[in-house]
């Protein structure tokens, strides 16, 4: 059977994995519909005014808050998460390193980005019953010890360290073998990939809840590319290694005619190229957003220009004209 078909058509039914995505999907939908209804009821036209999670009405500033693409991104993220954990991708990751790498890339890079693009926090909060909603708002309020702890342990620099550490530690031959030997270590591996991925992309996408000082687009672009060299070095090292890094795969019967060495090369290339590409894509998007924002800025009235700007910016001739006129008059 075709390997791709085997991966696509091998599925497991695991209620314990399904239950939370289903609950969060339902809460998101309820919250999204509720926020939309509130926006409509308060006399707002759908795209120009919206109700923020804290109840404030904002005109124009966040026009795309209720855009249809947000739920599409969020639900795509959840579906991709289930694909990574329940499909043949999970099953065949025990036989081929390259399949395991695809699973890790999905958990660490694709799923978190899609989930955060959906802005899940405000919608899920609004999807909760009132008592729960108030509880969550208290949890995230400034004086709460939970929030203080969260702010400290999720500082952007620390999150970057977590991500790189997770990437390097889990791909060490000994640790990787431990993960394939003990169930709880393997769960911890997936959990750390997913959690560090969520935290990293949370800062890059600047999605709610915004607990830290917001970074500018350019700072976020630099932040987004920061892990790329570490990812590349690891990918290159795996790709060009003559020796197998992971003993476990040496003992597994070979499938689809892929040798242990080729499997390792494919996995390394995937990490090196596709992984790095994900970081680069984020950089391009952030720079594009920055340029779009700059273009939207209205030019300052020439009366408010600084001295240097008066010399180099458009409108120069007007200043020269006026200055030439004034001595004569």
């Amino acid at each position: 059977m075709n390997p791709l078909l085997q991966i696509l058509f091998t599925w497991e039914f695991r209620p314990e994995v399904l239950i939370l995505p289903l609950i969060f999907a339902a809460l998101y939908l309820r919250g999204w519909l509720r926020v939309r209804e509130m926006s409509m009821n308060q006399g707002a036209t759908r795209w120009k005014t919206t109700v923020l999670p804290d109840g404030r009405i904002v005109r124009g500033a966040r026009r795309d808050f209720l855009s249809g693409w947000r739920p599409v991104a969020y639900y795509s993220g959840l579906l991709l998460l289930l694909f990574a954990l329940l499909s043949g991708l999970d099953a065949f990751s025990s036989m081929l390193f390259v399949v395991h790498m695809i699973q890790h890339l999905l958990l660490m890079m694709a799923v978190p980005v899609l989930i955060w693009l959906g802005e899940p926090y405000p919608f899920i909060v609004w999807g909760l019953p009132k008592r729960w909603r108030m509880g969550v708002s208290r949890l995230m309020a400034s004086p709460s010890s939970f929030r203080r702890l969260l702010v400290r342990i999720t500082a952007p620099g620390l999150v970057l360290f977590y991500l790189v550490a997770a990437l390097w530690v889990w791909h060490d031959g000994e640790v990787y073998s431990l993960a394939l030997r003990y169930a709880w270590v393997h769960d911890l591996e997936h959990l750390s990939f997913f959690t560090t991925g969520l935290l990293f992309w949370w800062h890059v996408t600047a999605a709610a809840p915004r607990l830290h000082r917001r970074m500018s687009y350019l700072k976020r672009a630099v932040y987004a590319i920061a892990p790329a060299p570490f990812n590349m070095v690891l990918g290159v090292a795996i790709t060009f290694s003559e020796e197998p890094w992971y003993d476990y795969y040496v003992g597994v019967p070979r499938v689809w005619g892929v040798s242990v060495h080729d499997d390792q090369v494919y996995g390394g290339v995937l990490m090196w190229l596709v992984g790095t590409m994900m970081f680069l894509m984020a950089v391009f998007v952030l720079i594009a957003q920055y340029l779009r924002l700059e273009e939207q800025k209205a030019p300052l009235h020439h009366a408010r220009w600084a001295k240097k700007e008066r010399l180099i910016a458009p409108g120069l001739e007007k200043r020269v004209d006026s200055s030439l006129r004034s001595p004569k008059s």
């Binding site: 695991r14 997936h190 959990l191 040496v250």
Partner: peptide, 27 residues
Amino acid sequence: MIAALAALLLGGRVWAHGGGAPQLTNE
């Protein structure tokens, strides 16, 4: 909250990788 989702989601996963402690390797 999302991290809690991750913890619950993946913490609940059962071992099903055909793995475990290797006893024979290409014997």
